[in-house]
Every structure is written in C-alpha cells, then in structure tokens.
Design a protein around this nucleic acid. Structure first.
Length: 593
RNA sequence: GGAUUGGUAGCUUAAUAGGUAAAGCACUUGAUUGUCGAUCAAGUUGAUGAGAGUUCAAGUCUCUUCCAGUCCGCCA
C-alpha cells in the first residue's frame, strides 16, 4: 500500500512512481487543478490532481480535511518558482495516478494548525491533537531519548529488569494508589511509587547493574511537572561509590545531549553542598543560569534598632538575607508591590528593599522605607558586601530560615526571568551532602530527606545516635536549570544501620518488620555495597524539547484533578465488581440531576 | 485544603456604566488550471458551563456548583 512516508519523499525520487498514505492536511481547489497536502508522521507532501482523469478528479473534489488517502503517483520537480522552501518535500510534488479514499472524517473539533486551542479540548480529542506537528515531534524526541539512554546503559553493562506493578503499600512517602485484591478479601496491593526496594533486592541477587524505564505512581496533587503516573529512568549498581556513579551518569547525560540536541554540556558538572545551595540560592535545586544570589546579612543586622531585622538576625532558626539586583532601581513601586505579593505566597510577611540611586553618596544616595532604621556603618558594609552600584536595588528577607530561603529563592528566579538576566542554555550541577533527616514541625518527628534507605556518611555514623539532624547522607541530586532531573544515593547495606534509621524515623520494630521485613532479611544474606539514581524521564524530555509542562511530552496525560478527559477515567464500577472485591462504597456520589 | 485566572457559535476571541450577543477562522454551496494559511461570492451556526437570586431588563451584579489552567500546602 505504501512505498514511502509523505514527509520523506524528496527530489532524490524525481520521476519515480511512489505510493503514499496519509491524512488530508489541506485542500486547495482551483477548479481545473486540485492540490492536497498529504500528511503523515514524517511531514507533508503536495499531491496534484489534474482533470485529465475525470473519475479520479471527481473523487478528489469530494475530499475533505483529515480524510485518509492512499495515492499512487509520479514524483516530479515543481515548476520553476513554485517551490515551497518551508517544506522538506517542497522542491517536488506527486502527480496523482491513482486515488483511494481509505476513510472519511468528520470535520475535526479544532483546526490542527491552530496553535492556541485550549488544553481541555486538546485532551478530550487527544488522538487528533497528537497529529499536530509539535506533539508528534515531541513524542519522536522522547523515543529517541529513551533509545539513546538504553544504548548507553546497555553498552555499560546494565541489565534491563522489570519489577512488579502490583506491590506492597509503604508507610513513608507519597500517598499510594491502591488495588484491591480479589483473592485476599480486605487486602490491597499498591502501585509502586518507585521500584526502590526491588532494585536493591536485585543488587542482593548479584545482578550487579540494573536499569529500567518504568512507570511510577503517586497519589498526590498535580502540577505542571507532576502527573499521578510518570516515568522514571531507574538505575542501581553494586560496588561503586558515589563519585563513580555520578561520573557515569554525567557521561550518560553528556552523550544524550550530544546525540539529541548536538549540545556539549560543559564538564565535569560542578558539585555544590546542600548547605551552600540553600545559603546562596535558597533552594536545593538552584538555577545557575540566573546570576543573582542571596547574601547572608544576619550578622550585620543583629544589633540594629529595627526589630523586623534584628529579631530574626539573633534567632538561630531565622536568617536575614539580601538579594542584590543589578539595575533594579528602575523597578516601579507597582512592580515592587507585585513582588511583595509574590513572596507572600511563601509566607514572607513583607519585602524590604533599598534603591541605590547614588552609591558614592552614602545614606543620601539610598531610597528606601527602611534606611532610617539602619546606622551608617551597617549601610556602608551592606553596599560593600553586595557590591551594589548606582542604579541597583537590594531586596531583603528576614524571617524563619525556611521562609526566607523559599521566598527569596523564588523571587530570585522570578526577577531573573522578568529582567531577562538568564545566562547560557544548559547549566547542570550536582547537589551533594544532604542532611539525612529534616525535622517535621507538625508531626514532631524526623523525616527522611531522600528516603529511608539512603546511607549516612561513614564519618557521620555516630551522629545517628548523638545528633541525627547533623548527620549527612550519601545522596546526590542532578540539577539542570532549576529542575531536579534525578536523585540518588548510596544505600544502606548493613541491617543494623537500616534498623537504626527506621527507628529514628519513628517506625516501630513491629511496623519495620511488617513493611520492610523482606528488605531487612535480604540485607542479612550477603548484600553488596550498592547505590543508584532515578531520573524523571518526563521532566528530562520536557527540558530537552523546551515544553513547559510534562503533559506536552506524554501521549495521554491526566488533568490537574487526575482525571482523563479522553476516556473519562476514573469512573464508577459495577456492583458485581465491587461485590467480588468485597468492597462497599460508603457514600453515594452527589446527585447529578 | 487554600490563593488565583478562565469557561460566550465547531475553534479562538469581542461585547461602552445592566438595554437587539458580534468578528476571524472552520463548515456548506457556487466560481476558479499553479496554489501552498489559495482566492472571490453567498450561506449556516448560540439555552453565553450548570443552577438560583436581584432587576422592567443579566453574558455583564450576587450566591451556589461543575470543569480547565497556574501556584501554595502536599509530593520520603
């Protein structure tokens, strides 16, 4: 039926007879001659119908948008001056000899060349949306990325192993998607949040190097970069330390960017401690393309007669930080008010600022509601430390450290984007030396910053007992342009250490035995030192294709309320199905009348 | 759970201070032998997401609700 893809017919086939199949992208009827742009996944091809074959021409007159055609015809150079430079096949056209209408089509619910159709419509008719050039290209790029990754890992000795989708609910982490068991009344499987434990077991089994491109499930609220089901590139290896794993993953990324985008990522990736990232960027995934930094000024503000600053400056749980914005004094009062509103989202109670009108004129050169509260020596030191020049602006955050970091960290990105300060295209880095735990104020207990199987640094082992909050882990995150591409760690391979960590997380011996007994057992049967990493494949593809949501790189994504507009899932099930599962729905859904 | 933006013809949008719902594209028909977002002419298309209220009068004001987007919380 087909000899060539439409989009791949070019001048090298001139004078040959080809058979192509595709969808009618556009029809231009000139009465005596009809042009049809025929489209398939590889692109467009102009097909010409002449009236000398009356029967075929009559059929061509009835063709409408999105009809599916098979056309046999001769490739010929377009007439002089009639080439279309926008088309890969623009130098040639196909003169139709035979036409088969394989299928008719209703008028599509939206036009394929309309690039601002609402996402709601696109998702409802996703099968049509996927015909558009942008979607097709992104899915093709995604497939190329997966293949390049597989090629690299395969050549590096990694085995692709599948792990169960029906598995055990875990107490830590995100909310599980549950699947009721028919054969065990009242019991449930959980869909995996990640194959974490299975890949560790594969290391115990001596598989040595494992990878998998695998679906993961988390029942939490959605974002532009979060879907209830998403794809991880999951990797684990034995007998390598963190430096070796990081080097290998970096090499993989470098090859990937070269293959897909022809981009040379500068290497080696810089490494930054968690503490430094929080201090300088207010974030554990800093966007290094933005040349703004948070500056610690708590020590300066301790003794000033301005409680908004001196209070937090003296409190060890708080910080006062400055964000120096070159040329920022051009910001209007209205813009600064908008930024004040912006940081309020993160809990900041205000946003102090100083406009540096004339850096050489001391206090007189500064414009700000707070200058009157600050003594000369503090102002001098502030200008010195920020290296602020005339025309600049300095924002301040003074609050709980967490709030200051989140507020100024987000402001840093927003201001950087608004003022067009972004430098360079790709700025990867590693963030290392994460704390093992974070104190959860609400639950009044420790939480694992990565996950409960992350190993503590050898030299911090004693801190597990004495001061767990000071204990750092052997975890590492790969960050690209402010997005966490992946995170991993060296795992705990000693049973006693694993038990200790679970206890610190407030998991009782009984619960540990119940939920993780199989892992604890496995650790006792000759578990090698091992570690790994998991990358968010959707986010990686999103960055590499320049998409602004992972929905744009998934064929059939869900909406923000985790429903599928195409299939109308989730939906109710029959009484028989529920009965078989021994499940009773407690409340009837609200009346829909 | 919260903040915020939007929902008007098949699609994308408009509608002054509450006073006859409009345009472009799509679609239909006709014309048209070199277009490529073809062109020209004529034509069809609406319970303004749903429900209630205020009013002589509601797309517009009020309340409730549903859907979609962005963000906060949440996401080890």
């Amino acid at each position: 039926m087909r000899t060539h893809y439409c989009g791949l017919v070019n001048e090298s086939l001139t004078d040959q007879v080809v058979e192509v199949c595709g969808w009618v992208h556009r029809r231009r009827d000139h009465g005596g001659v009809i042009f049809i742009d025929l489209r398939d996944r590889e692109g467009l091809l102009q097909v010409v119908f002449n009236p000398d074959q009356a029967e075929m021409f009559a059929q061509a007159e009835r063709i409408r948008s999105e009809y599916v055609l098979a056309v046999k015809g001769k490739v010929r150079s377009r007439l002089e001056g009639k080439e279309n430079p926008d088309l890969a096949s623009g130098k040639i056209e196909v003169i139709a000899q035979e036409l088969t209408i394989l299928n008719r089509a209703e008028t599509p619910p939206f036009q394929l060349d309309d690039d601002d159709v609402s996402e709601e419509h696109r998702l409802r008719y996703r099968y049509i949306d996927l015909r558009t050039f942008g979607m097709t290209e992104r899915l093709k790029t995604r497939a190329k990325i997966s293949k390049a990754i597989r090629d690299y890992l395969d050549s590096d000795g990694y085995l692709e192993v599948e792990t169960p989708m029906l598995t055990k609910a875990t107490p830590e982490g995100a909310r599980d998607y549950l699947v009721p068991s028919r054969t065990h009344h009242g019991q449930f499987f959980a869909l995996p949040q990640s194959p974490q434990l299975f890949k560790q077991l594969l290391m115990v089994s001596g598989l040595d190097r494992y990878y998998q491109i695998v679906r993961c499930f988390r029942d939490e609220d959605l974002r532009a970069d979060r879907q209830p089901e998403f794809t991880q590139l999951d990797i684990e290896t034995s007998f390598l330390n963190e430096e070796q794993i990081m080097f290998s993953m970096e090499t993989m990324m470098r090859q990937l960017f070269k293959t897909i985008l022809d981009v040379d990522l500068a290497g080696p990736f810089p490494q930054m401690t968690y503490a430094e990232a929080m201090d300088r960027f207010g974030s554990d995934k800093p966007d290094l393309r933005i040349p703004l930094e948070l500056l610690e000024v708590s020590d300066l503000m301790e003794s000033v007669d301005f409680k908004v600053f001196s209070g937090p400056a003296k409190d060890p749980k708080c910080r006062v930080a400055a964000l120096h914005v070159p040329k920022g004094s051009a910001l209007s009062r209205k813009q600064i008010d908008a930024y004040t509103k912006f940081v309020a989202i993160y809990g900041a109670k205000g946003l102090a600022y100083i406009k540096v009108n004339d850096a050489s004129n001391g206090r007189e050169g500064l414009q700000s509601p707070i200058v009157k509260n600050l003594p000369d020596d503090v102002l001098d030191e502030l200008l010195k430390r920020t290296k602020a020049e005339s025309g600049d602006l300095i924002f301040f955050g003074a609050d709980k450290t967490k709030i200051v970091n989140e507020a100024l960290g987000a402001l840093r990105i927003k201001v950087g984007e608004d003022l067009g300060l972004i430098e360079g295209d790709w700025r990867p880095l590693w963030v290392i030396d994460f704390p093992m735990f974070e104190y959860d104020e609400k639950a009044k207990r420790l939480n694992a910053l990565h996950h409960p199987f992350t190993a503590p640094k050898d030299e911090h082992l004693d801190l597990l007992e004495s001061d767990p909050e000071k204990c750092n882990s052997r975890a590492y995150d790969m960050i690209l342009n402010g997005t966490e591409l992946g995170g991993g760690s060296i795992r705990i391979h000693k049973q006693n250490v694993q038990k200790k960590v679970l206890k610190l997380l407030g998991i009782s011996d009984e619960e540990a035995e119940d939920k993780f007994g199989f892992l604890l057992n496995a650790l006792s049967y000759g578990c090698p030192p091992h570690g790994g990493i998991a990358f968010g494949l959707d986010r990686l593809v999103m960055l590499m294709t320049g998409a602004n949501s992972i929905r744009e790189v998934m064929a059939f994504p869900k909406t923000q309320s985790a429903s599928c507009l195409l299939t109308q899932a989730p939906s109710e099930v029959s009484a028989e199905q529920l009965k078989e599962l021994n499940i009773k729905v407690r409340q009837k859904p609200k009346e829909t009348e």
